[in-house]
Amino acid sequence: MVHHPGRVSIIGAGTLGGTIAYSLLLANTAKEILLVDMSHNIVQGQVLDLAEVQSTTTIRAGTFKEAGQSTLVVLTADTPPNDKDKNRQQWLKRSRHLLLSIASSMSPVHSDIMILVTSDPVDLYVQSLQSYFPHVSPNRIFGLGTTMATDRLGVWLRDMMSTSATTLPAEIADVYCIGTQHSPVIAWQHAKVDGMPASALPNLIAQRDVCNKIVSNHRRYLICERKGKAWFGEASAATRLVNAIIKSSTTIAAAAYGATAAASAIAPAKNPVWVLSVNVPKYECCLSWPAVICDTGIKHLVDIPLSADEQAQISQVVESNIADFQASFDN
């Protein structure tokens, strides 16, 4: 199998896929972008439109087989719930059927591929892909997870402390929203504000209910009520993650070929932490958890302490995700 370094393939050429492609073109991150979709007209229309963007990155329509030989695949295709679904189980079955159809069309994939899932149900998709491609390390298959919820949490904490304290906190660190997109769990036990445990700050404790609403999908629901879909935040988060992975890979490759100190200094000092849908061995399932990323995907998971209440919430998430995975198989 041929591996094409620097190629990013986006499966699903709708609004989300097109927006991610547009952002990557502006950033000049990838060598080549492939748009892949079962609809020939949508792909051709998006490629013609995106080709107008001034970029050093080439973009073209691609096949599922070509996507399987990419450095990174971004999966945006999904099958949203509809009125024909009598229950959640039918939607889960349709989602799994779509995913397996895509995975089969991509096969065979090389072992160094990375797959980023943005589609819902993200945990089901990640776990199913890891099962379908056993020769690919689970660390190379992950989903966007609660990245956006964690971002919202960080913004809220900064705003909260800047208005309620006499001085701006020196540091807001280790702030993570774990669990799932629809059942986010704030890891207060691990979060720190100005070096102090966030769980010990009275003004934050008093605002827990407000914060829980902020990190939820409440804003997304409001957007969908008004315009049907919410794409831009998700596309931004996915693009930033792709940029972080590809640029990390490019920097390492440059160093291997004797890049100058000035060029290598462009790389970040350390690998960033993202809250992604990953396989968490101690729970034996996929859910959103802090992970350090690098040029090969997940470098390692971050070990975070949980309070008894947080652990109880995560146990419910694990139980629900395992039930969803099993339900997608049932006849």
Rank of each mutant, 00 (worst) to 15 (best):
M1W: 06
I10A: 03
G12L: 06
G12R: 09
G14W: 01
T15D: 06
L16E: 01
G17M: 02
T19P: 00
I20D: 01
Y22T: 09
Y22Q: 15
Y22N: 14
S23R: 15
S23T: 10
K31T: 05
K31M: 01
E32H: 10
L35T: 04
V36I: 15
V36E: 03
H40G: 08
G45H: 12
G45Q: 13
A51Q: 15
Q54V: 12
Q54E: 11
S55F: 08
S55L: 07
R60M: 02
F64S: 08
K65D: 00
K65A: 13
G68A: 11
S70V: 09
V73W: 06
V73Y: 04
V73I: 15
V73G: 01
P81F: 07
N82R: 11
N82T: 15
L92K: 04
H97Q: 15
L98H: 07
L99K: 09
L100M: 13
A103S: 14
S107N: 08
H110N: 05
D112E: 14
D120Q: 12
D123T: 15
V126K: 05
S128G: 06
L129S: 10
Q130S: 11
Q130T: 13
F133V: 01
F133M: 03
I141Y: 06
I141C: 06
I141N: 08
L144N: 01
T146D: 01
A149E: 03
A149Q: 14
A149D: 02
R152G: 00
M161R: 10
S162L: 05
S162Q: 12
S164M: 12
S164R: 14
A165V: 07
L168S: 08
L168I: 10
P169Q: 05
A170D: 10
D174I: 01
Y176L: 03
Y176M: 06
T180P: 03
Q181A: 11
Q181D: 03
Q181S: 04
H182A: 01
I186Q: 00
I186P: 02
W188L: 07
Q189V: 07
V193D: 02
D194Q: 11
G195F: 14
P202I: 13
V210F: 11
C211Y: 02
I214Y: 05
V215M: 02
S216I: 04
C224P: 00
C224H: 09
R226K: 15
T239S: 15
R240W: 05
N243Y: 06
I246L: 14
K247M: 09
K247C: 09
S248V: 00
T250D: 09
T250V: 07
T251W: 02
I252R: 08
I252E: 12
A256T: 06
Y257C: 02
T260C: 08
T260A: 10
T260H: 08
A262Y: 07
S264K: 13
I266V: 15
K270Y: 09
V275W: 01
L276R: 10
L276K: 09
C285G: 04
L287F: 11
A291M: 05
I293S: 00
I293D: 00
C294W: 13
G297N: 08
L301K: 08
L301E: 12
V302I: 15
L306D: 07
L306P: 07
A308V: 13
A308D: 10
A308Q: 13
E310W: 02
E310D: 05
A312L: 06
I314C: 07
V317S: 08
V318K: 03
S320T: 11
N321G: 00
N321A: 02
A327P: 01
N331R: 05
